[in-house]
Structures are given as C-alpha cells and as structure tokens.
Write a protein that binds this DNA or RNA. Structure first.
Length: 124
RNA sequence: ACAACAGUUCGGUUUAUCGCUGUUCGGGGCAACCCGAAAAGAGGAAAGUCCGGGCAACACAGGGCGCCAUACUUCCUAACGGGAAGGAUUUCGGGUAACCGAAAGCCAGCAAGUGCCACAGAAAAUAACCGCCUUGAUGCCUCGGUGUUAGGGUAAGGGUGAAAAUGUGAGGUAAGAGCUCACGUCCCAACACGGUGACGUGUCGGGGGGGCAAACCUUAUGGGUUGAAAGACCAAAUAAACCGGAGUUUGAGGGCUGCCCGCCCAAUUCCGGAGGGUAGGUCGUUGGACUGCGUUGGCAACGACGCAGCUAGAUAAAUGAUAGACUAAAACAGAACCCGGCUUACGGAACUGUUGUUUUA
RNA sequence: GGCUCCGUAGUUCAAUUGGAUAGAAUGGCAGAUUCCGGUUCUGUUGGUUGGGGGUUCGAAUCCCUUCGGAGUCG
C-alpha cells in the first residue's frame, strides 16, 4: 500500500542529530541524500525526513509545496526499496534535502526521485 | 450600457482514485494497538512585528535619579500610538465677496533656561559699518559755512539674505525711535453669552514681538522586567560527589528588575571551575473582549437584549497528487499561546455611491 | 517566537554630528605612448544617497512609514 503514516517518518531528535553527524551523503540533482543504518527493532524498516533550506526559498508556501511534492513522489515509489530491505533485514534513516533553486513539477520530481531511490537500493 | 474614482463583501467550486492530521462512533485485543465508518481540517491578510491587551514567571515594602513612549477636544474600547464625531491651523479648488468643498498633519511649551542659524551682509539677536543729528579741539575762508579728528545721540534709509527687529497714518524731536496716540495683526489674562469640551463671538485691560524643541530641554500623563524557547506536572537517568572562593560580633556576593539608597537571603547557603545524566510524554493549547441572525439605543465608532451555533490544534510540524468539468494551469500567500488594531502584498467577481459619455422614452 | 544592526557611482569605501556642484580608489569610454597589446600618462563618464512622505531657509545626515539584507538568543 502506498501509505505515508506517522511511523514511516523520522521524528526522534536523537536519531536526526546522529544522522546529520555520522550519515553517508551523496548528491544527485536536485536532492542531497543522507542515510544511515539504524538498530533493527523498529516499527517500520525505513524512516524518512524531508528538508528544504530557508536560504533558497524564503516563502513558507514554497517550502511546504516542495516538501509535499517530495513526500508524494516518495510515497508512490518506495515499494521496491522496502522489498530490498526486507530481504537484507536492515533498517534505514533517510533524509532528503532539496538543494535546487527552483520548484519542479510533480512529474519531474517523481522521475528524479526514482533515479535516486534506485541508486540507494544498489548501495545497500 | 460603458469608463474612472471611493467604499463594502467574497477570496475558487465540483466529480473520481490514492494519501495526511487529530476527534467521535462501532468491532477486535489483557494491553500497546489494529480494522471499518462518519463528520471536520489555514488567512483576509495566517505576513511585517509597528502598537495595545490577556496569560505566565521573577520573594513587585518603599523612596530618589535615569530611560522610553505619548501630547487639540469629547466619546468608543479590556486597552491602544487604533477608531468615531467635532474644533482650530495650513494647503488646494470654486466664488466679486460673505462663504462653500476637499485634503493633510508628532495640533503642549522658544512669554523658563541653554544652544544653533552656513554663504552673503554693517549687523543673525546686548544689532552703530555707512548715513543722519550734535558737542569739544583744530585747519580754511567771503564769518557762517565747510574739512579733519576725538566723543555722544540715533534703528527713518542702505545693492545682502530663507529670515533684518510689529504694519499704516499722525504727533513729537537736534536728529530719531511704540517715545506717544489712533486703527490693524498676533499673544496673555479677566468678564459676558453660546457649547459637555476643544473653541467661537463680544467687551475691557495688560504688554510680548526673527526662526528652530522631527536641537538639548521644560510641563503633563503613562510604563516593574522578561516572554509559550513563559511556566506546571509525570516518566527516565543521576552525584546530598570533586576542586577553588566568599562567609559566622559583618556585609563580600546574590535575589533574571538600568543606577543609587533601602529591603530580603545566610554552610541543609551562595558564586565560579571542571565534569556526569536526560533531551521522552501530558498540561499550558484553544469556548473566546467567539460567530451568525433578529430587535433596539446612538449622528457615528460602538453598546444592550434575545435566539441559535461550536468553528484547525500540528510538534521536524497535517490540506497534497493525478485526470476532468465550470470559466481561465486563477492573485497575494501557510496557523505554531490567544485576542484587538495598524501597515504592506493581491488576479478576479458582486453590490452601493459620485462624476462623465452615449442610446431610448 | 524575541532582539539588534545595515542600505551612498558597475564595485569597495568617504562626507569634519544639518550648509550646498555628494568625494576618493577601482571599473567603463576616448586620446597619447607602442609595429600590436599590456603598463604608464591625460581627459571624460557614471548617483532617484533602497522607495514614499514630513520637519527645516536648506536633509545622505533629523522624524515617520515601507521594502530589502545581515547578525544574534535554546
């Protein structure tokens, strides 16, 4: 099911600061991706967080829109990543930082995120 | 009907599929929680943070100094630097004029003190440079005129300047001067009338005259400080530890409050250093100076009464995506403790009023 | 959420606490020098002092408002 509920989001401050300090980073325009493995007993095998820097987008409306587009794209395409994680018995914390300067449409965002998720599943 | 201006209201709707947030109901489960259904889910500015409150904490005794804000009147309001109605002033437009209309503003006080006013000009505020009048000394000569020099009086005149010592007329004088008088302008005080009042009109008296307080300042009034990262509670963890200092017949230091006095605290104390642990949850947190309708008081802002209604509450942060229709990828734009204003951004739609043009009667 | 500061030529900075054409360096342009270019020299250009309004005789400076930018507090 393409859901995106509470337990799929990254909420814990502790895990977030751990991720920012020690996470692995790669970049594929327009997203900077940070990820790290987390100890296994979790409610959901992958916890995700989106971020948009205030420096690039002054208006709250624009930041909200980008986050929503990103979440929507992630929601519809995360299945194959989950399968991979199930097989290898791992859990992930994931952070998507939008580094672009312009707002993309939904189709573009979906395409870009598809590329990135495939890249990530290969690395795992 | 169209256009312009002003004001008020609205601020996309809807169908299908997938998805998000809390709430309620039903079912399952010891419980955590899971499944299903229902109804609800950003704004007129949520913004800027320019003002005012509520609320909370800080041991608000009290006094002085400082700092900040405000500054015509009456009213509205919980309060305001907001709003309403009015007064005076200035500017603009119309009119021969009385006056009418519109707009604006940090509308107390340079008649408390201090300070500043470039350049130009004699002088920028205790005005004598030139000029005018006059006295002494002295030169000349036609013997009452003229020149030189020293002193005194004088603001009528002087090419400057943003601004030049209250305007006009008369008297007065050696020459002159608000020196005196009349009229006029402005200010102050008293009285009468009108008005709740600012103020207006009139009478009488006084005597001030450059400008600048968005110069320091004076007067009056108000303001304790800090802001939900305030604060309360629960859970988890831990260290009543260590080092240095202050201190007990006296006042160092501290008490989140500008400074001083004062008051309060006192080794189970305070301050500093270097470390350890936690960083989750609940409340605060949305029922309120609330919203809608009706009646009613008031010129109005706004108030009173009655009936009905419940209308976001997230916590890394919920409203989105896809396809289509209306009519067009609708504008500005996203709540974060809550209200009242102000200001700024904004595609379009509707209504009302005023002005102009055209058509018909 | 609160608080503080800053906006001047294309760029980097001045302007003696209100006083006159807003100045300097650099840049741009033109000329000289050179066979050509650079360097150097000379001349010249360029400003709504972020925008709007006000006070004043006079505003970059004082006041109000607004726009933009930067910093800071757990």
């Amino acid at each position: 099911m393409p859901t995106f509920g509470k337990e799929e989001r990254l909420c814990s401050r502790k895990v977030i600061s751990h991720l920012i300090k020690n996470g692995t980073t790669f970049f594929n325009h327009p997203f900077t991706v940070k990820w790290i493995e987390i100890p296994l007993p979790q409610n959901f095998p992958i916890q995700m967080l989106t971020a948009v820097p205030k420096r690039n987008f002054k208006k709250a409306v624009d930041r909200n829109r980008i986050k929503r587009l990103t979440k929507e794209a992630y929601r519809t395409q995360k299945d194959f990543l989950l399968d991979g994680l199930d097989k290898k018995n791992k859990a992930l914390a994931l952070m998507l930082i939008y580094s672009g300067k312009k707002i993309m449409s939904q189709q573009e965002t979906t395409l870009k995120l598809n590329i990135i998720l495939r890249q990530l599943s290969k690395i795992i």
